[in-house]
């Protein structure tokens, strides 16, 4: 039975899709069978970030409406054999996502994959609540910025009340993924620090993804950042988060801890 993960945040533009693609690819690169599901009906983008935008035939809504079989809608990644994508519909309305339909699709995916990663749309409407509904684990993507932290807090509340696990009186596992973290700005006091965010949201930290040009570069060419450049700082951070997700306990690397000689000199000058 596979594990269902929801990647959520409330706020838009914080890195849900980037993180879904990167974590999904990293898990698949480690040999796990992974499917990444786009729940953003009407505004799909996971296909674009994963470089499969020209190959979409059927989508999640087609499967839910019975117009296509699940196996026909799944797109296999061309680089990693065990990585699959289930795209969202671009033309349909999000009302086409029915709770029963989503339940059936998730149940079928759980049977066939080790990991089912649900990329949630922004907001707290139907798409977002259905994406989190069947999750075993939630990854709350947050930027070190006030509105993102506030929205994450709201989402954590929803995870604790609106998910199937919560309704059954169980605890849903929640992790914080801090993205677009700029160590230099945090050091100067211009950005919320890791400890600030952790203290406010009080959920365990899965990883810290540094702000990096490599993320934009990867999306430009349509590859998850862990595949585009596996040695880049954000890729290393995603690999680390993936190991933690698989149950390993290892200390979180805080960007800026290991400053290079030049970095130290210029960093001081800038401060």
């Amino acid at each position: 039975m596979g594990k269902v993960i929801v990647v959520t945040s409330g706020k838009g533009g914080v890195g849900k899709t980037t993180s879904s693609a990167a974590l999904g690819a990293a898990l698949a690169q480690s040999g796990e069978k992974v499917v990444v599901v786009d729940f953003d009906v009407g505004l799909r983008n996971l296909d674009l970030v994963m470089g499969a935008e020209r190959r979409v035939v059927y989508d999640l809504v087609n499967v839910i409406q019975g117009e296509a079989k699940l196996t026909q809608a799944l797109i296999r990644d061309k680089r990693v054999e065990t990585l699959y994508l289930l795209p969202a519909s671009q033309t349909r309305d999000k009302d086409n996502l029915t709770p029963e339909g989503v339940e059936q699709v998730i149940a079928a995916l759980k049977n066939a994959f080790d990991w089912v990663i649900c990329d949630s749309p922004a907001g707290i409407e139907r798409g977002a609540t259905l994406a989190m509904r069947h999750a075993d684990v939630a990854i709350v993507v947050t930027n070190p910025e006030v509105s993102s932290v506030r929205d994450s807090d709201r989402i954590i509340g929803l995870l604790d009340s609106k998910t199937l696990k919560a309704e059954n009186g169980e605890r849903i596992e929640k992790h914080l993924l801090l993205t677009r973290y700029d160590a230099a700005r945090a050091e100067r006091g211009d950005m919320l620090k890791v400890d600030d965010v952790l203290e406010i949201l009080s959920i365990p930290l899965l990883g810290i993804i540094p702000e990096s040009m490599d993320v934009l570069r990867a999306s430009n060419v349509g590859a998850p950042v862990t595949l585009a450049d596996g040695r880049s700082a954000p890729a290393l951070a995603y690999f680390e988060a993936t190991r933690r997700l698989k149950g390993e306990s290892l200390p979180v690397t805080i960007p800026g801890d290991k400053r290079s000689f030049l970095g130290k000199i210029f960093g001081r000058k800038a401060a």
């Binding site: 470089g51 934009l216 430009n220």
Partner: peptide, 30 residues
Amino acid sequence: FRFFSRAQSAPAARERLQVLLAHERAATGD
């Protein structure tokens, strides 16, 4: 070395978007 050896990625982004949007604009509904 890595900084200089990398090809620009923006042209790839431009080309991918042009193809994708041409298809999406042509497709209204089904």
